[in-house]
Every structure is written in structure tokens, then in C-alpha cells.
Simulated scan of single mutants.
Amino acid sequence: MRAGIIGGGFMALVHARALRALGVEVAGVASSSQASAVMAAERIGATRAFPTVGELIASSDVEVVHVCSPNSTHATFAAQAVAAGKAVVCEKPLATTVEDALRLARAASEAGVPTAVPFVYRFYPVVREIRARVMRGDIGRPLLLHGSYLQDWLADPAETDWRVSSTLGGASRAFADIGVHWCDVVEFVTGQRITRLNAKMTTAFGSRGNEPESVETEDIVTMMFETDGQASGSLMVSQVSSGRKNRLAFSIDGEAGALAFNQEEPNTLWAGSTTENRIIHTGSSAMSLGDVQRLTLLPPGHPQGYQDAFNAFLADAYGRFEGLPVRDVPTFEDGLRAALLTDAVTRSSQLESWVDVSSLTRVAAPVSSVQAPVS
């Protein structure tokens, strides 16, 4: 299968590395202009620079379209790819509104087009180990889900980026960008859904850049929540926490024990009980069989990281695109779920009260367990 990438920034490079690891040809790239596409093609190793996005999507050389452009363009480009019958890997947010996310999920389902959204933290071996232990009942019923996703790339008000703009990035930044990752991975490992939440969105710096421009999107989100499994939870999201580079951390506290993960130390699992605490390393004999071992590429002491998780995500996504019975690949439905959570966080912050998360869990046309393979 051959891939085409829309966009030429950091995430396009991550996608291209994962595709090369799979042995998939990056047949082309399109960007905001022909000149930027040429530069992107050289940077990510694409075979061809397409003059326009439309030409990339229409090309017979491209069977899978990867949408890695600014957030405000995701819905448009993904819809065009679906209409062309191409498999689609779309960066999150799938869309900047619930309505657009719902339209995309329904369109892909009705067309039988296979899709994927890179909620890649699901693909760490330690995360799969936590899921296996929770599902086995090792820690009993989960009572408390808590943690944070902290970054510092915007801790200096002189720093700015297109993501800061509500026009290009959407009305929510910190939560839509990284908070949804935390929610996805915690819902994935527990099998529970957040049903109610109370959130506050805070903008730490009202202006940014050397030539200050006003900022409308949030830097910080604090959130309390409840789940359909009667668990309580709390989450802190920040892009202005000095020293925290990409710290997605969560703890699952159950009736009989606790489990914790920190993405800045992704090869260790913390397991706690009233009698002892243990640190378990990726690849050790204490890890589960099956999915955990499948995703464990190296012996203990040889660290795996974010790019490895991303590679595993794309390997499973492409397996599903080809009609294999691959489970747990996040799809447009998961992108819709993230949009619903973002909408609830925004409404809660505006109303300064608890709100229900929409119960919409499935698009109008049911999606089969194995989507149609790409022809």
C-alpha cells in the first residue's frame, strides 16, 4: 500500500518514519503551497511533491491519505479522502466541532472506508499490561482515576504557534490537543467511559509572541469527572508547566491495588498494594502474554518510546486496512468521542458547573468489527 501525507510539519515526519518502518512507500506529500510541498518531500522522504491537496487525494499512486495539516483543515481534507474511497489516517482532533466529527464518522461508516486516529498511547506495552491487569480483576473494581498531561513548550509567553490560534487550531487547545489523549488511554485501560465532568479552562498568558497577539485558547484545564463504572476522577492538563516535556501520567486505584504509568518513563509499570509496591520493567517475565509481548520489541533494559508506539499504531491500522482482524485500532469513532469530551469540557467551563458528556457512542450506520479492505 502507498501513502500520501498532507502537511509537512512535526507530525508528518513522525508518520513518515512509521511508514518507512512498515515498508510503506510515502508516494507523495502536499502542503500549503508547491514550494512547501517540495521542501516537505525532501524532509520526510516522499517520492513526489503534489501541487495541491486535491491532486494528492485523487492520485492513483495514493491508497491511504494521512491528514497531518492544521486542525481547522482536518474535517475538509478527511471528507475529501473518504469521498474518494481512500483509507484515512487523520490526526486529532478529527474536527474542531462535534457536528463535523459526527459527519465524518458517519460518512466513513456509510462508505465502508477504513479509518484511524493516532491515539498512540494505547500502543505502549506498559499501557497494554495495565489494561490486561484491570480486565483480569487484579486490582478489583477501579475506584479512582487520576493524573495529568503536562508540557512546557508554551511556558514562555514569547513562544507561540499556529495551535494557539482559535481559527487554525480550534476553540480548545490544551484539552483538544493533549487532554483527549489522557482521556482516551484511561478509558481504554479501564473499559469505562467518562459520563459527567466539571472543568475549568484557564489562559495563563493573554498575549503571546514577540509582537504580542491576543490569545483565546486555554493553557490549562482542571477537571473532575465520574464514569459509568462509578469511579471518580481528576485530571490536570497544562502546556505551561516548566520542566514537564511530555508527561502523560495516570493512576488507576482499585479496591485491591493500584497501577500507574508515566510516559516520560514509559518502560516501567508501578504496581501498588497495602503490603508492597513494585516496579515492573517492559520485557520482564512478570508481563502478560499476548498483546503485551507482541508490542514488546526489545529485551528488558532496552527502552522503547513514542516513535515505537506510533509505529505499532500504524502497523495495526494498516493491518486493519488490509482486512485483517486487528482489534483496538482507534478510528473516526474515537475521534468523535474526543470531540464530545472537548465539547463537554468547553461547556462546563463556560457554565461553571457539572455537565453530562453526550451519550452518543456510535454513528448512525454501525461499523463492523473489521472494516472493508482497501482495494
Rank of each mutant, 00 (worst) to 15 (best):
T52I: 00
T96D: 09
S349N: 03
C183H: 06
S60K: 12
A107S: 04
Q80C: 13
E352Y: 10
V29K: 03
I194E: 01
A108L: 05
A27S: 08
T331P: 11
T275N: 05
W354Y: 13
E129M: 12
L168Q: 15
R320S: 15
R136Y: 11
P212W: 13
R17H: 12
E91V: 03
G170C: 13
T115W: 01
T203F: 10
V67M: 07
S238I: 05
L324F: 03
V65Q: 01
N246Q: 13
S109K: 09
A286P: 08
D161Y: 10
Y124R: 00
S273N: 03
S241C: 11
R133T: 01
V67D: 13
V329N: 02
M287P: 02
A16T: 03
G283K: 05
Q293T: 11
Q350H: 07
S234K: 00
L145H: 04
L22V: 06
D291Q: 05
N71D: 14
A16Y: 03
A107C: 02
A204W: 01
T167R: 12
E110V: 12
D228C: 11
A78H: 01
T217S: 01
R208G: 02
R133C: 13
D291H: 06
T167V: 13
G112Q: 04
M11S: 14
F261T: 02
E333P: 09
N210F: 12
S348T: 13
V326K: 08
G9T: 08
D219T: 01
R122S: 08
G85H: 05
H66R: 00
T227K: 04
A364S: 13
V88G: 01
P330W: 07
A81E: 00
A21D: 15
G209M: 09
P330A: 06
A95G: 06
R128L: 15
R43A: 12
A87L: 02
G169R: 01
E218K: 11
L235T: 05
S60E: 00
F10A: 02
R20I: 00
A204Q: 02
D161A: 02
P299I: 04
V127F: 09
A46T: 01
A204L: 14
D156R: 06
V38K: 14
Q151N: 00
A101C: 10
Q34F: 07
R136N: 14
H181V: 05
P70H: 03
G9K: 08
I5Y: 07
I280F: 11
I279M: 06
S232E: 13
A231Q: 04
A83E: 15
A365G: 00
I130N: 13
L314D: 09
M201H: 09
I252W: 11
R244F: 14
S232G: 09
W270K: 10
D152L: 06
F119M: 07
G45Q: 01
R48Y: 15
T346Y: 08
I6V: 11
N277W: 15
L235E: 03
L144I: 06
F119L: 09
G229Y: 05
A18I: 08
T282V: 09
